[in-house]
Amino acid sequence: MTEFVSRFIAIPDLLAASPILAIGLTLTAFFVGNWLFARIGKPLWMPPVLLSAVILSAVIAVLSIDYVRYQEGALWITVLLGPATVALGIPLYQQIHHIRALWLPIVVTLPLAATMAAVYAVVIAWTLGATPEVLASLAPKSVTAPIAIGITEQLGGSVALMMGGLLITGVVATLFVDLLAKWLPVEDERILGFALGLNGHAIGTARAFEISHTAGAFSSLGMGLTGVFTALILPLVFRL
């Protein structure tokens, strides 16, 4: 009987030898997270990716699966980020006519605001004594995840820390845009949408689509252009 129990306890470790356990667990957490997100009324401060990740982390910890081993198996999923990043070029192309309509404000705002989004974070963290690895993980905080993962790897940062920063940035950018829109005030939906996408990547874009379709389109555009611009500029700046 004790032998049976010990065989039972060893199951997760034995199954973890193949990537299929990591794939199964990730998929399960993804669906459970999405279901739970809908059940608790789709709150802005708790994006589904965070919900799913918390569930997944808890399951990995409870089954005492080795984290590095999990990541090796999950490579079957994360390797798809490459083609998924390429796929972002299609919605970007579909939004490009907005640039023609409003090219001057976009051309002036984008380089300045996208650069400052990284500069503010890096300068504040550097002043408070963060290490170069942490700085490299914070720099792409306003960039959409698939692009930001590529940037952080190029800069030598921690992808895990960057992902955490990315989530927090998306959530607080959404709150700050709502707050400052009232204070300043800014009522133009195109400006609000662009600011949401530029600073708050996909999380901001989800909020922008709640404001209006126009805000959503400008947010997608802001997110796409920020991703491309930051990916091109940051590695060059960090080299110096």
């Binding site: 965070l50 990740a53 895990a160």
Partner: peptide, 28 residues
């Protein structure tokens, strides 16, 4: 789904960055 494994890392690697949380929170 594709970025989830990356997010999970935050919970397992958090201790590596202890002592820098103030800098990280202020920057964000």
């Amino acid at each position: 789904l594709l970025i989830m494994p990356g997010v999970v890392g935050v919970f397992f690697l958090a201790s590596q960055f202890s002592g820098q949380w103030l800098a990280v929170a202020a920057a964000l």
